[in-house]
Each structure stands twice: as structure tokens, then as C-alpha cells.
């Protein structure tokens, strides 16, 4: 497929990348490209300028602090996270990244790209919401940090505004997490998914049922299905599942994720 004409820049510093994004309303950040290049083929997106982030070492890598906090560079690929010794401090992260798409996509696709594209069927938005991640966003005027619950704003929309970049994903210490999904084929696109984390009570984030992850709290796995019902979900229908079936899956998957977190 021939893409629409596009300019390409590959900055070597974060400041240059932010300047390039701020200079043109039609500029878009190119991370792993495993979504963006395809939506460009379909003309669903037609940026004027691609700002390739692959030269920015400051956006790569995973660090583990003494208190167990993980600091993840958004340009870390799924495969790098799966292979990271540091990331094992929060095992659910690698478990989920290992079930995204296929080897080739995991070799290129990035943690930051998955979060910033915020497709409602993506794996990582509900996971980051459940584990209580914080996202640091930088612009030319400085940076700010928002909780995952304030990061996802709508379908394909996040708190990252034009001219800004996600620069850091901070995941607090913890091990008692779970994730469950019904997918189109093994490791395929999610029809419905749920992530759960035990931190006093169970915090559960439901994916694929609304524009952004839906957060639900429950005291124990036995209460999860009632808590999901109380959220009065109204999921979209498509060729893969009716809204009613997705709402049913949300209950089932929330309980599965919760039981994994309680193990």
C-alpha cells in the first residue's frame, strides 16, 4: 500500500522531538508503528510529519527502584519488557505483554504506543489502570504526572496533547495481580478483557466495554460479578460480540482476573 505523502524526521533528543511535534499540528509521534503505519495505509490517519522516536534512548529502558517501583521508558518494546529482569518485580506486566499479537509485533510495538493509541481493545490501558500506574507527560513547557485513571480520555484519546509526549510510566510495587481476556484467536485482539490488582481491596479495570477502562472495586472475588453489574455497562456491539455478550464477558473475566490476583 502506498501511504499518503509524509515528511519524516528522526530527532536525537527529547527537546528536538517536542519541538518538531509542537511546530506542526499535523505532526504525529511514530513509536513502534505497529498500529500507526497500518492506520496510515487505511488513510484513517494521515499525518503531515512523522516524528520517529526510535532515536531517543532517554525514552527506553526499565529501572527498578529499591522500594520496588518500576520506571518504564515508553519506547520499551513488548519483547524487551518480557525479557527484562527488572520488570519481573511486577510479573503481570511481562505476562500480559507476552500475549499481545505475535513475535514480530512484540519486537517492534511499544508500551507507550499501546497506551497512547488507547484503542479500547488494547491490553495495557486496563492493566495500567488496575496496577495504579502513573504517566509522566512532557511538553515544551515542562512535564506533569497523571494517574492512569486521568490519562485515558476517550477512544484513541489520552491526556497527551498535541506537542506533548508520554515520557515515563511509573508502576508501584506489587505482585498480586491478574489479567484475563477473550481474544480473536490465541493472543489476538481482545473481545473483552479485565485486569485486577489486590491492594487492600480488589481494583479491577475492564477493557473493551467503554471508551476508556472502567474501574470497579470489590472486597473479594465473590463480590466481583455484582460489582461489575452495578457499573451498568453498556458495551458496543460488533461482528465479534453483541453488547450484552460483552457485558457478560466483563463479569466473567473480572472474576477470573480477581481470582488470579488472590492466588
Amino acid at each position: 500500500m502506498l501511504l499518503r505523502e509524509v515528511e519524516y524526521v528522526k530527532p536525537s533528543s527529547l527537546a528536538d522531538a517536542l519541538a518538531a511535534l509542537a511546530a506542526n499540528d499535523g505532526a504525529r509521534a511514530l513509536a513502534g508503528g505497529q498500529t500507526l503505519i497500518n492506520v496510515m495505509k487505511a488513510r484513517a490517519a494521515s499525518p503531515d510529519v512523522l516524528v520517529d522516536l526510535n532515536g531517543l534512548d532517554e525514552l527506553k529502558g526499565i529501572e527498578l527502584a529499591a522500594d520496588g517501583t518500576l520506571s518504564i521508558g515508553p519506547m520499551t518494546t513488548y519483547a524487551e519488557l518480557v525479557g527484562s529482569a527488572e520488570a519481573r518485580a511486577r510479573p503481570i506486566l511481562g505476562e500480559v505483554c507476552a500475549q499481545i499479537a505475535d513475535v514480530q509485533v512484540r519486537n517492534r510495538g511499544t508500551i507507550g504506543g499501546n497506551l497512547c493509541s488507547n484503542d479500547p481493545t488494547n491490553h495495557l490501558p486496563p492493566l495500567m489502570a488496575a496496577v495504579g500506574a502513573e504517566l509522566t507527560i512532557a511538553g515544551e513547557d515542562g512535564e506533569r504526572t497523571v494517574p492512569a485513571s486521568a490519562f485515558f480520555l476517550g477512544v484513541y484519546m489520552t491526556a497527551v496533547q498535541q506537542g506533548e509526549l508520554l515520557t515515563r510510566i511509573t508502576v508501584p510495587a506489587g505482585k498480586r495481580d491478574g489479567f484475563a481476556a477473550v481474544t480473536l484467536g490465541v493472543d489476538g485482539t481482545c473481545i473483552a478483557n479485565a485486569a485486577a490488582s489486590l491492594d487492600g481491596s480488589l481494583r479491577i479495570a475492564l477493557g473493551c466495554v467503554d471508551a476508556v477502562p472502567v474501574l470497579v472495586e470489590a472486597g473479594s472475588p465473590d463480590d466481583v460479578r455484582a460489582a461489575v453489574r452495578a457499573a451498568k455497562l453498556d458495551p458496543p456491539s460488533d461482528v465479534h460480540a453483541s453488547g450484552a455478550y460483552r457485558a457478560h464477558l466483563a463479569e466473567v473475566l473480572a472474576e477470573r482476573a480477581a481470582r488470579q490476583a488472590m492466588r
Binding site: Q34, I37, N107
Partner: peptide, 13 residues
Amino acid sequence: GVLVKSCMLLAVQ
């Protein structure tokens, strides 16, 4: 050294 799908990369990359 990394396996990729070459339809999801630009040549300039």
C-alpha cells in the same frame, strides 16, 4: 538481528 514485518516499517527507518 530482530524479526519484524517489513510492511509495518518505513524504508527510511
